[in-house]
Amino acid sequence: MKTITHLCLIRHGETPWNVERRLQGHLDIPLNETGLSQAEQVAEHLPDLPYTALYASDLTRTRQTAAPLAKKTGLLPIVTSRLRERHYGILQGLNPEEMLSQYPEETAHYDARTPSFDAVNGESLQSLHDRITVLMDRLAKQHRGEYIILVTHGGVLDIVHRWINQQPLDTQREFPIPNAAYNWISHNDEDGWKIEAWADRSHLANTLDEL
Rank of each mutant, 00 (worst) to 15 (best):
R61W: 05
L76S: 07
S124A: 08
K141D: 13
K194S: 12
R86I: 15
S116K: 06
Y147W: 15
A39Q: 02
A140T: 09
N121C: 08
D209H: 09
T62S: 06
M1D: 14
H153S: 13
D130Y: 08
S116I: 02
D58S: 13
D158E: 09
E190Q: 12
H109Y: 12
P47A: 07
N32W: 06
R22D: 08
A140G: 09
Y147F: 13
I164T: 07
T107C: 11
H26T: 13
K71Y: 10
L208T: 11
G74V: 04
L36R: 13
N18C: 07
V151Q: 01
N206L: 11
R201F: 15
T80K: 10
G35A: 07
I159H: 00
T207I: 00
L100K: 14
R138N: 09
R138L: 13
P68G: 02
N165V: 06
D58W: 09
L59R: 08
I185R: 01
E174V: 15
I159Q: 00
I90R: 11
W198M: 10
T114G: 00
L150P: 00
K141M: 10
I4F: 05
V160P: 04
Y51W: 00
P30A: 14
W193G: 05
I148H: 09
R63M: 14
D130I: 04
T15N: 00
S124D: 05
K2I: 15
K71V: 12
E33S: 14
P178G: 08
